[in-house]
Computed example of a mutant assay.
Amino acid sequence: MYYLLKIALTAVVVVAVSEISKRSSLLGGALASLPLVSFLAMIWLYLDTGSSDKVAELSRSIFWLVLPSLSFFLLLPILLKKGVGFSASFGISTVVMVCFYLGMMFCLKKFGIQ
């Protein structure tokens, strides 16, 4: 039952962003930009483990890995405005983002950040 609650609450957040974005892209963007998934993940992690250390580690990892994800949100609208189709724009933006993730993980490892 606990897992069903976690799934249902997480699904409600995603659907809410989608529905609100139909009416207002600014409000949908504001809601989507909130770290709701991160909030939920931290809450679920703490409730499952009772470990504030694990939550702190997750929070630190999220901080470092948010940076490469920004490339997706910068590149996607540029490609769409240039007339590249949605699927291609989405795919290219995703590939670039993954490359930035890999680069960030390489850099973090090089500097000893776990």
Rank of each mutant, 00 (worst) to 15 (best):
Y46H: 13
V96N: 05
V14I: 10
L67R: 00
K81T: 14
A16Y: 00
L67T: 13
D53R: 01
F100Y: 13
L79W: 00
F72E: 01
S51P: 07
M97C: 15
L40H: 03
L31H: 04
W64Y: 09
V37I: 14
S61C: 03
I92Y: 04
C99Y: 04
I62Q: 02
L31E: 01
F100T: 10
G91K: 06
S51Y: 06
E19Q: 08
G50E: 07
K81V: 09
D48V: 07
Y46G: 10
P68K: 01
I62T: 11
T49D: 10
P68W: 02
V55N: 09
D48K: 04
L70F: 14
A88Y: 05
K22Y: 12
W44A: 02
T49Q: 08
C99W: 11
L75N: 04
L58K: 06
F39C: 12
L65Q: 07
W64H: 07
S93M: 06
T94P: 13
V14F: 01
A32M: 11
L74H: 06
A88D: 06
V15S: 01
V84C: 09
A11W: 02
D53E: 15
K82C: 14
I92P: 09
L31N: 04
L34Q: 10
S93V: 08
F73V: 07
G91D: 12
Y46K: 07
L47N: 14
L27V: 15
A11G: 08
V95E: 07
V37L: 09
G29R: 05
I43C: 06
K81Q: 10
S71V: 15
W44V: 14
S25G: 14
L74R: 02
S71M: 11
S71Q: 01
A88S: 12
F90Y: 09
S61F: 02
S59R: 00
K82F: 15
L65F: 07
G91Q: 03
T94C: 13
L40W: 00
F86M: 14
S59E: 09
F90C: 06
A56P: 04
D48H: 03
F63A: 13
S69Q: 08
P77R: 04
P35S: 14
S61Q: 06
T94Q: 06
G50T: 12
G29Y: 05
L36N: 10
K82Y: 10
S38H: 02
A88K: 10
L31C: 10
V84Q: 04
K81Y: 08
